[in-house]
């Protein structure tokens, strides 16, 4: 339960960190908050030759309103997101989700860039990136590129980042809505989700003008359920709509079975949570 030996560098610029990654020739690993990486080091499931600690890089921790977007620096800790007034006002679904991200001591260290790069399919921030349609800004040896969240998560614990790329910031477009709901279920509070659903709606009188639905814990990546959205967009709002959403969500996900829950249970749970989330969203005063 102790890490195997590695070389350690703590560069002070993103450029130097990328140089160190390139020099490590595939044997380097970025250390941000370390709340997923250090357990893997302790178990020796990951044995990098070089650990590149980016915590000493200035200017990677910020939460800023930029026009119709919130830009968040990659090194921003979960606790800062949880306690940010700007996030509470502008990204209320993220605010609601943050208390479910592990526990206080983990949130004090864990970073948004690290969570997205780790890409756990049952982690909140990757799902929120999909839900809000975030853009992930990655920097490599040849400069920066912008990656849509829907292209970023490739598989469980796998992103489209190149080996020498580092996430530097994430842009969350503001989402206009008339109500939203966030529902998560885990075995113990703060554990990874068995299933989780986020919903936001736009009303046009008695018609559902638009909706957005994202899920996690029920696939190899977090999911934006666009086919479910398409089926309910434009539908008349009535008391049966939450149940309809539940059925559509359950039918559209293909969860895995593991020691925590069976696939059938997760499929059922995703529907129940979707129903609750939409009920909450519809109850909001427009």
């Amino acid at each position: 339960m102790k890490p195997a030996p590695f070389d350690y560098v703590a560069p002070s610029t993103v450029e130097a960190a990328i140089e160190a990654l390139v020099a490590a020739n595939g044997e380097g690993k970025i250390l941000a908050g370390g709340q997923s990486l250090v357990p893997l080091l302790n178990f020796r499931m990951v044995r990098p030759a070089v650990l590149i600690d980016i915590n000493r890089i200035e200017g990677l921790s910020f939460i800023e309103l930029r026009g119709d977007k919130i830009a968040i620096g990659a090194l921003t800790r979960h606790r800062a997101l949880e306690r940010s007034q700007l996030i509470a006002e502008k990204l209320p679904v993220m605010k609601a989700a943050m208390r479910h991200v592990a526990h206080v001591a983990i949130r004090n260290r864990g970073t948004i860039g690290g969570s997205l790069s780790h890409a756990d399919p049952a982690a909140e921030l990757p799902m929120l990136a999909l839900f809000y349609g975030a853009t992930i800004v990655a920097q490599g040896a040849s400069g920066r590129r912008h990656i849509a969240a829907e292209d970023f998560f490739v598989d469980a614990l796998t992103t489209c980042l190149a080996p020498e790329e580092i996430v530097v910031e994430i842009e969350f477009p503001l989402l206009a809505h008339d109500g939203w709901g966030f529902e998560e279920m885990s075995r113990r509070f703060g554990d990874f989700a068995l299933a989780c659903i986020a919903v936001a709606i736009r009303r046009g009188g008695d018609v559902l003008d638009d909706l957005r639905v994202a899920a996690m814990g029920v696939g190899d990546t977090p999911l934006r359920l666009r086919m479910v959205e398409d089926q309910l967009r434009g539908a008349a709002i009535d008391g049966s709509m939450p149940e309809r959403l539940a059925q559509l969500v359950s039918a559209s996900v293909s969860p895995n079975s593991d020691v925590h829950a069976s696939a059938d249970y997760r499929r059922h749970l995703a529907g129940v949570l979707a129903k609750r989330a939409l009920t909450t969203a519809l109850a909001a005063k427009a």
Partner: peptide, 23 residues
């Protein structure tokens, strides 16, 4: 030693952290 139990929690610059998940 993998961040689950919380027994090793200390304050680092005033914030509670897992000392087993920090070098």
């Amino acid at each position: 030693e993998h961040g689950v139990c919380g027994a090793c929690t200390v304050l680092l610059d005033g914030d509670s952290i897992r000392s087993c998940l920090t070098l």
